[in-house]
Amino acid sequence: MKLAQEIRTGNVIMLNGNPMVVQKAEYSKSGRNAAVVKMKLKNLLSNGGTETVFRADDRLDDVILEHKDCTYSYYGDPLYVFMDEEFNQYEIEKDNMGDVLNYLIDGMEDVCQVTFYNGKAISVELPITIVREVEYTEPAVKGDTSGKVVKPARLAGTGYEISVPDFVNIGDKIEIDTRTNEFKKRV
């Protein structure tokens, strides 16, 4: 059992007897320090999609699945291809890629975890921290090194924007927490 707030894109949960792969999970604080998690789910048996909401502290049955460490290989429209250490290739549908697409770049060496259900690759997870280059951000305000002032920064390769401290510059390589999309540090 996992709390709804611990469920990430790519996890599979059993919902009313159906294995559902989580394609998207959005956590929102509601009131009184409570929270809800909206999930986009796909039924692995029927391929039907649905959207649903949970309290953040709802306990969900997560399915224990087979995982393999893989690296991103290439995009073969419409599938993303990953490869394991033994050069076996696994194809994952775009809909099952979730937020991974925000950080997926050609030639990346990050070791990802591909998840299998009944032998089929159904999703992929990035490592918790990754390093990406800032392609564009506004110039820093001179003197501010506190990290409290934030600004948007566009990442090279995907164009995805995250918030970074004001001292980050174009061309900087930054470490990002892929669970929260938060800047961690400049490397």
Partner: peptide
Amino acid sequence: EKFAEDCHKLSSFAD
């Protein structure tokens, strides 16, 4: 917040 619109009337399955 926007999520109230996004989550309004959606089903859930817990407990």
